[in-house]
């Protein structure tokens, strides 16, 4: 990598570095451990610096998170190739919603550790849109851009991810807790 001009570095530190927490958080939920997340986030920030000159300033976070994601998958191929083949089970019909089961309170009071564990156990394809939506507040369109899938796919994966989480935190007693047609 060539030397960075002082001006580029100054703008980079003003524009991109404030989003380091977002980069690390995303990497942390993707790798599911601190050291790997630090490696991925570090590498992603250096890549971002490298590409910074060709970047339009309006959408910093989605741009940075897309770089984090690409960095992660490169890292995954090298370090945990088996995870790449994770099936999503998208052949089954998408969950169609929730029944009026009073699970709202159970969900709201969900134990943090159980919730974190459930999140970590989601396949990457479900966890990613959920992290980007719930933790980063990105729009469907921004998420679709980062994941390189259609918006409809973002919506169905979000629905599946949420259904699984709700099942876990409500004790999994009602398999159909988030599905009207059980």
């Amino acid at each position: 990598m060539g030397p960075t001009s002082p001006d580029t570095a100054r703008r980079f530190s003003q524009v991109v570095l404030p989003h380091l927490d977002a980069a690390y958080n995303y990497a942390r939920w993707l790798t599911r451990n601190d050291q790997d997340a630090q490696d991925v986030a570090h590498e992603a920030m250096l890549r971002a610096l490298q590409f910074f000159d060709s970047f339009n300033r309006e959408q910093v976070r989605p741009w940075l998170l897309a770089i984090v994601r690409n960095t992660f998958y490169t890292w995954l191929k090298k370090n945990r190739p088996l995870e790449l083949a994770e099936p999503l089970g998208e052949d089954s019909p998408a969950p169609s919603g929730v029944n009026p089961d009073p699970s709202e309170i159970a969900i709201r009071n969900a134990d943090r550790r159980i919730l974190a564990q459930a999140l970590e156990r989601l396949p990457h394809g479900y966890r990613e849109p959920l992290i980007l939506r719930e933790f980063e507040g990105l729009s469907y369109q921004e998420i679709a851009g980062i994941l390189e899938v259609p918006i409809g796919t973002v919506m169905s994966r979000l629905a599946r991810a949420r259904k699984r989480l709700a099942q876990v935190v409500t004790g999994g007693q009602r398999k159909d807790a988030w599905q009207r047609k059980g």
């Binding site: 927490d21 601190d34 029944n99 969900i107 919730l115």
Partner: peptide, 25 residues
């Protein structure tokens, strides 16, 4: 049905908004 579904969505978002679930650098 849909009103309950909506409340469950909000409840899950509220649970996930726990600051301890957001890892800072």
């Amino acid at each position: 049905n849909c009103a309950a579904a909506y409340r469950n969505h909000r409840a899950l978002s509220a649970a996930l908004a726990d600051p301890a679930l957001y890892y800072k650098a």
